[in-house]
Amino acid sequence: MIAIEGVRVTYRRTVALHSIDLLLLPGVTGLFGPNGSGKSTLLRVLAGLLRPGGGTVTWDGVPITAADEAFRARVGYAGHGSGLYDRLSVRENLELFGALHGVGAARVEEMLELVGLRDRGGLPAGELSAGLKRRAAVARALLHEPQLLLLDEPYANLDDDGAGKVSDAIKAWRAPGRVGLVATHGARRVKGYADGSIILQHGRIISYRVRTPAEAPT
């Protein structure tokens, strides 16, 4: 369980997050909101990549910080960029991050298969279309089966087939105790499997809803 208490982030004079309070429960939660609502900022704070100007973020009572190596081993994050090296092939990128996370080649192949990139694994990441890069980025974030998954616009530039594969990969990752937060404009794609939803507007949470057992996702 992740507890966010009074988290405030400002960029110069712009307030990105206004004293957010949130209890993030295990399961996948959709994070929705218009551009500039603070979705990406909240994800970066949760990944420990951005230190908030105020407030605390704890995971099972332990403060979250990217300086903590044990925390880093348990978080999977895909931001706006793909996080891939253009001159390495998709497979080499996943093998690299797999090796850094202590994951073997079999898992790399499994992830390539899951996001539908096995045939294109040998292509340099720089030669992929924006949509295929997105899929590869999701595969990289899921590679080490993180306990905390943070995806920023994983459906950007994806066609229906690609979006379906990304959704399948996220559903396959879901397991008891794991916490996932998926920020997207395409609420339709996430609502099919999300356990809850958060709506951000102007850096404030205007809605936080957790599905009841009767509404359980498929």
Binding site: A47, G48, L49, A66, A67, E69, A70, R72, A73, V75, G76, Y77, G79, H80, G81, S82, G83, L84, Y85, D86, R87, F97, L100, H101, G102, A125, K133, R140
Partner: peptide, 18 residues
């Protein structure tokens, strides 16, 4: 090479001492 495509974020989250 790390700045391009935001690879630096992915790198900062690998379990390796800075």
């Amino acid at each position: 090479v790390e700045r391009h495509e935001g690879a630096i974020d992915a790198l900062l989250l690998v379990p390796l001492d800075r």
